[in-house]
């Protein structure tokens, strides 16, 4: 059973391993700098007549790809934890409706991958669950329609804006030994710095990311240098800079930091402003690039911190601040 260490961090005592991971992305992600790490890609609508149905297909495709790779049947999976940005998480539920796997829908905005991984790890650590799939998805077009404007409306977005990633990433956690295991999880608290600009999510999330990373390091008596890599979810170029500045301010300088939102697109050629965002952003980057490079031995201890901006179109219109949250998970090679 997980052991509480310090204020927010839990040591995983019954080993939880990463068995395998799968991702399916959209065309823009495939064309980006990490393109070669993504094994499959599809158009945003996945051949369906609505963006929402398309996103569900991404969820289903990521799950199928993971099960096929591992040659396991859905009966062997104890549960799947999945979330997305659509109203009431329908992309996940519709995408998994034919899977016959017990399903928990989770929501933590763009931090959902961290949330589902942390919860999945604790389930396996608890002893009752043996194989758990953690996954999330997002879709550029569905998110634009829900949170911003119709696709065909002509207009510009400010340079602080981020671009929702299209794709779904899935990770299979198990209790049978594999190369990479999860050693700690640090669930985050909500940080509110009164950021109200819905076009500047990076700034809303950076304090939450710093809050979780700082508590994690404090709880374990570690410094950032104890990790080969600290990877944040979707702070983007702007938020990533703010995160490092806040860490510096609190006496925890971070030099080995990468951000999934910054990695996935090339802002010079792809017109993606401050970088990628969305539930799918950290999920597909972790499930492909990060875990594959870990498997190849490039990094041996990685702190993954998925970051989320908790808001809805209604809360933004009503003038509420955009709240930040971040959940940390430590991956370590044996």
């Amino acid at each position: 059973m997980a052991q509480k260490t310090g204020k927010q961090t839990y040591l995983i005592t019954r080993p939880v391993y990463v068995k395998n991971a799968a991702s399916v992305v959209g065309p823009r992600e495939k064309a980006g700098p990490l393109g070669k790490y993504f094994e499959a890609w599809e158009d945003e609508d996945f051949g369906e007549d609505t963006w929402e149905k398309g996103e569900s297909r991404f969820v289903g495709a990521a799950l199928t790809s993971l099960l096929t790779k591992e040659k396991v049947s859905s009966d062997e999976i104890d549960c799947v934890l999945s979330g997305d940005l659509e109203n009431q998480c329908t992309a996940s539920s519709c995408g998994l409706k034919d899977s016959n796997i017990p399903y928990f829908g989770v929501f933590g905005a763009c931090s959902t991958m961290g949330e589902s991984l942390a919860l999945g790890t604790l389930l396996v650590d608890g002893g009752g669950f043996h194989n758990v799939i953690c996954m999330t998805s997002s879709n550029f077009c569905a998110a634009e329609k829900q949170f911003r404007f119709p696709m065909e409306l002509g207009g510009q977005r400010p340079p602080t804006a981020q671009c929702t990633v299209t794709g779904a990433g899935a990770i299979l956690l198990t209790d049978t030994p594999c190369k990479t295991r999860i050693t700690h999880v640090t669930p985050g608290i909500i940080e509110n710095y009164q950021i109200k600009d819905a076009n500047n999510m990076g700034a809303a999330m950076a304090p939450a990311c710093a809050s979780t990373v700082k508590m994690h390091l404090m709880d374990l008596g570690r410094t950032a240098a104890d990790y080969d890599l600290i990877v944040s979810g979707d702070l983007g170029i702007l938020g990533g800079g703010l995160f490092k500045e806040i860490m510096e301010l609190h006496g925890y300088p971070v030099s080995n930091h990468k951000d999934c939102g910054e990695l996935i697109f090339d802002p010079k050629t792809q017109d993606t402003f401050s970088g990628g965002s969305g539930c799918g952003c950290s999920a597909v980057v972790l499930a492909s690039y990060i875990l594959r490079e870990m498997n190849a031995g490039r990094w041996n201890r990685v702190l993954f911190v998925a970051t989320g901006a908790l808001m809805s179109p209604v809360s933004v219109k009503q003038g509420d601040p955009i709240l930040g949250i971040a959940h940390g998970v430590v991956f370590e090679n044996l």
Binding site: I189, E191, N192, P207, A210, K214, H250
Partner: peptide, 9 residues
């Protein structure tokens, strides 16, 4: 409240 004592709003 919050974990970041050196950072005011």
């Amino acid at each position: 409240s919050g974990n970041l004592e050196h950072l005011t709003e």
